[in-house]
């Protein structure tokens, strides 16, 4: 990453078929991990493997949702065409053929997007767009779904609904799900595993094993408190802020 070491000495294992979230402050290396697994970035030391193969070798078996993709109203492409591109978009030829229509319909029903899939993607709400994009990532039957902040632009009911949908996909189809998140709370009751990046390192485990005062204090080497609100939400207090943290998220958080 431009000559910088994002993290080192990190060893982590995500169980196949697990629903795992990658957490941590901005710049801690969450997206970097996804890009390493996609084979877009090399690891300078150590190794990474996806389902036993080197990263990048199996990209057709990884469904990928990059960060913050919002289509504005000027994008006049139907949701269903976008989903079909997930199936055959890398193949040469004209974008006219109808092959794979059943699989596209099936996956649109699975995510609950069949009602609005024939509308232009730019006219859909953020939650509807996210479902179409999840369908696109799923349509080629990947074994791993890698999502970068898929809940970021959604309102709270939609965040919970998408988290529940992802868990259902994980359980029903045995798809491993790796999800980068800024806020763990909408996901908390659905997750199997958590990877928490911080201070150039990472801890892995079940959500409650990782997100507690003791583990996070050990990770950062400074005292950190995890408080639980009466509704079950977790709040982390005392995170050391990285210098020069001026992301847009912090401005309105």
């Amino acid at each position: 990453m431009g000559g910088q070491t994002v993290w080192s000495g990190v060893s982590l294992d995500i169980a196949p078929g697990a629903f795992a979230a990658i957490l941590g402050p901005n710049g801690a290396g969450k997206t970097t991990l996804l890009r390493v697994l996609l084979g877009e970035l090399p690891v300078t030391a150590g190794s990474a493997s996806v389902h036993g193969s080197s990263p990048g070798a199996l990209n057709r078996q990884i469904g990928y949702l990059p960060q913050r993709r919002q289509f504005d109203a000027a994008v006049r492409i139907r949701g269903i065409d976008l989903v079909r591109l997930g199936l055959d978009g890398a193949r040469w030829g004209l974008p006219l053929r109808r092959r794979g229509a059943e699989r596209v319909d099936e996956v649109l029903r699975l995510v609950g997007a069949d009602d609005y899939a024939t509308r232009p993607i730019g006219e859909l709400s953020g939650g509807e767009q996210q479902r179409v994009l999840i369908a696109q990532a799923l349509v080629s039957r990947p074994r791993l779904l890698a999502l970068d902040e898929p809940l970021d632009s959604l309102d709270l009911p939609n965040q919970t609904a998408v988290a529940a949908l992802l868990q259902r996909i994980c359980r029903q189809d045995g798809v491993t799900i790796l999800l980068v998140a800024h806020d763990v709370n909408p996901l908390l009751s659905y997750l199997d595993q958590v990877v928490y990046f911080g201070a150039g390192r990472a801890v892995v485990g079940a959500p409650r094993e990782v997100i507690n005062s003791e583990t996070l204090s050990r990770l950062y080497g400074v005292p950190i408190e995890v408080l639980q609100a009466s509704d079950g939400r977790l709040v982390v207090v005392g995170l050391p802020e990285a210098p020069a943290h001026h992301s847009d998220r912090h401005e309105h958080a």
Binding site: I62, L85, A90
Partner: peptide
């Protein structure tokens, strides 16, 4: 040219990051 690259070009045009990750 468009008959050959039409589909991947459409993919790259609307959704560059995902198209790149799937080998376009």
């Amino acid at each position: 040219f468009f008959a050959v690259v039409g589909r991947p070009l459409l993919f790259a045009s609307v959704d560059g990051a995902v198209a790149g990750a799937s080998g376009v």
